[in-house]
């Protein structure tokens, strides 16, 4: 039995409770990820996919339930303290990097994730070589632009850099929140390929939200589908490998007890 890397223990979250904009985002989410699991998360808009990821990351406190990462109870830890365990890539390429700082400075910030920051130099010369090597693996030519401001990079380059930064210091859990959704198809494919490569090389435990059914089926060893704040489908192992699109649709209808609305799911 592999080690448990993430345990989401019956969490619930309601935004703006008691107001006209009240939104029950997570009703009762229960999920356990084993070390090395790469799970893809699908579901319609408002199903709670991103909310679940953000709850794990600590963007907001949950109303009830418990979250453990690598055996540590993080339920009451603020976002910046949980960062120690987490690598994160966001949907918006602008979110993951500091535009006004250069590439190597961004990487140096990521290299110190979860460490106290004092009056030592922000970047030491020996680090630079390591960053250059790492950037070379992206194959984007960024290793020759380490002094360039990140704001000058394209969305795809920024996402690739964010991915690299998220895994520079091996996280216990990698959270990918629709990280290819804002990219053109070609770039998205490249970033996705890079994601699989990094996850495989570092044997990471990862959770990836996607709107793309094809990717969700093709990538990872496990697939979960959310609907109305709950996980309604959870497929793994051999069964996940042989999954087809029609099958996923069928599973969803059975679990959610409603006709699947293809438009709402934005499945492609």
């Amino acid at each position: 039995m592999a080690n448990t890397m993430l345990h989401i223990n019956h969490i619930a979250k309601t935004f703006n409770p008691g107001t006209i904009t009240e939104k029950k985002a997570l009703l009762d989410v229960e999920l356990t990820l084993n070390e090395g699991d790469f799970v893809t998360v699908i579901g319609g808009n408002g199903a709670g996919k991103s909310t679940m990821l953000n709850a794990v990351a600590g963007v907001f406190p949950v109303d009830s339930g418990k979250i453990e990462i690598g055996g540590v109870d993080v339920t009451h830890l603020p976002e910046y303290k949980r960062a120690k365990y987490l690598g994160r890539v966001f949907q918006d390429p602008m979110t993951g990097t500091a535009a006004t700082m250069n590439i190597e400075e961004n990487m140096a910030l990521a290299m110190r994730r979860g460490q106290p920051r004092g009056l030592k130099w922000g970047i030491r010369p020996m680090e630079r070589e390591m960053y250059r090597e790492q950037l070379r693996t992206l194959g984007l030519g960024l290793e020759d632009r380490m002094q360039s401001k990140v704001g000058l990079l394209s969305g795809g380059q920024r996402q690739a850099l964010t991915l690299l930064m998220a895994t520079l210091k091996t996280p216990k859990l990698l959270l990918l929140d629709e990280h290819t959704a804002a990219l053109d198809p070609k770039t998205a494919a490249k970033v996705l390929e890079l994601t699989e490569k990094i996850v495989a090389e570092q044997k990471l435990t990862a959770m990836m939200v996607t709107h793309n059914m094809k990717d969700a089926i093709a990538i990872g060893n496990r697939l979960i589908m959310m609907n109305a704040g709950r996980i309604v489908v959870d497929v793994s192992g051999e069964r996940k490998k042989n999954l087809t699109r029609a099958e996923v649709m069928g599973l969803f209808e059975k679990a959610a007890g409603e006709e699947l609305d293809g438009d709402r799911l934005l499945l492609s």
Partner: peptide
């Protein structure tokens, strides 16, 4: 310094800074 860089990151991108444990 590390601290100074983290201060710049805080101003440049709050969400990113927190995701990096700042």
């Amino acid at each position: 310094t590390e601290l100074g860089c983290s201060l710049r990151a805080t101003g440049a991108n709050n969400a990113m800074a927190r995701a990096q444990g700042i």
